[in-house]
């Protein structure tokens, strides 16, 4: 049973994608201009995956993410002020400046963190799914991870347990063709990560990760299965990152050609969706540019907020290491 996206849902998915794109474009500039410290792994190109899956999730559903996590936070409803403040390492950030890009989270909207450990989020999402079943809720958990992460033991152990216990879990593999600078055919002997589902006794589905509607429909089935107590699904979304592994231009290694990047950019997921929205009379060029402008303005204001807000007080370094009774 496929859940069709209504016009309202399509506009909602579009909004989420534009929010991710603009957040990341501006974050990329901040990193390249040395405005924020550390390393940012940007999500540009993969927006359809986060938006298409997240459109099915409520704040009470939980997700785990990866080092490339900003897009998942934005799609789950994260606010720009707190997100940029975190990238700046400011006290007003989601993690009070302690976590930064690779640990950005928001427990209030069910976002259990980006993760600096490849594959690190998958068993945690499995645990969250266990909790949901244990507490007899109708909630689900989803874990986003890369093609590279599917080679970590954590993926395999969590997949097996999720299937064994029939947990309400959606394993979303964002296959962007690379783990860092290593091409998929140089890190695994399969083409479809979804094939691995069979080894654990769950459905494995391959979907075009540049097509937001296709992602939405496939994710809808997986989420419905999870909510109905039918167990986990491995959903593989074929996608591509438009920026380098870290930052925008990265270390300047030549591990992929400009032609390849350009070919994928011609299938820019936002452009594809916008063409559909216009073609089907759901939106207009003018309305779409208004969305872009509104979100851009919001991003610029949030960056200003982050820049102007104070750094954490170094004397508070030891706060939050342990839970202390109030």
């Amino acid at each position: 049973m496929t859940i069709q996206a209504t016009d309202a849902v399509l506009l909602d998915i579009h909004e989420r994608m534009v929010r991710i794109r603009i957040f990341e474009e501006e974050a990329g500039k901040l990193m390249e201009n040395g405005k924020v410290p550390g390393a940012l792994h940007l999500y540009v190109g993969q927006e359809a995956v986060a938006a298409g899956v997240m459109a099915h999730l409520k704040d009470t559903d939980h997700i785990t993410s990866t080092h490339r996590g900003h897009g998942h936070v934005v799609a789950k409803g994260g606010q720009f002020n707190e997100m940029y403040a975190e990238l700046y390492g400011k006290a007003a950030g989601y993690c009070k400046g302690r976590g930064g890009s690779m640990h950005i989270c928001n427990m209030e909207i069910g976002m259990l963190g980006a993760n600096g450990i490849v594959g690190g989020g998958i068993p945690i999402a499995m645990g969250a799914a266990f909790s949901k079943k244990f507490r007899k809720t109708k909630e689900v958990a989803a874990s986003f991870f890369g093609d590279g992460a599917s080679n970590e033991g954590s993926f395999h152990e969590a997949a097996n347990m999720a299937a064994l216990y029939k947990l309400p879990l959606i394993l979303v593999c964002e296959n962007n063709g690379f783990g860092e600078y290593t091409r998929q055919d140089n890190h695994q002997a399969i083409v479809d990560v979804a094939d691995r589902a069979a080894g654990y006794g769950m459905p494995g589905v391959v979907v075009d990760g540049m097509d937001a509607i296709a992602v939405f429909e496939a994710a809808g089935e997986a989420v419905a299965r999870a909510r109905n107590g039918e167990g986990p699904t491995l959903l593989e979304c074929k996608t591509y990152r438009f920026y380098d592994h870290v930052g925008v231009r990265g270390m300047g290694l030549s591990y992929r050609t400009d032609e390849e990047v350009d070919a994928w950019k011609r299938r820019d997921p936002i452009k594809l969706l916008e063409e559909k929205l216009i073609e089907q009379g759901i939106s207009t060029k003018r309305k779409i540019s208004a969305v872009h402008k509104r979100v851009r303005d919001e991003a610029m204001a949030a960056i200003k907020f982050a820049e102007d807000s104070p750094l954490p007080d170094p004397d508070g370094l030891l706060e939050d290491v342990y839970y202390e009774k109030a």
Binding site: P37, G97, H103, L311, P312, P314, L317, L318, V321
Partner: peptide
């Protein structure tokens, strides 16, 4: 180093 995980923010990391 003090008994805490390594913090992200430059202000905290410097004092760490």
């Amino acid at each position: 180093a003090p008994f805490s995980p390594v913090p992200y923010s430059p202000s905290l990391e410097q004092s760490y």
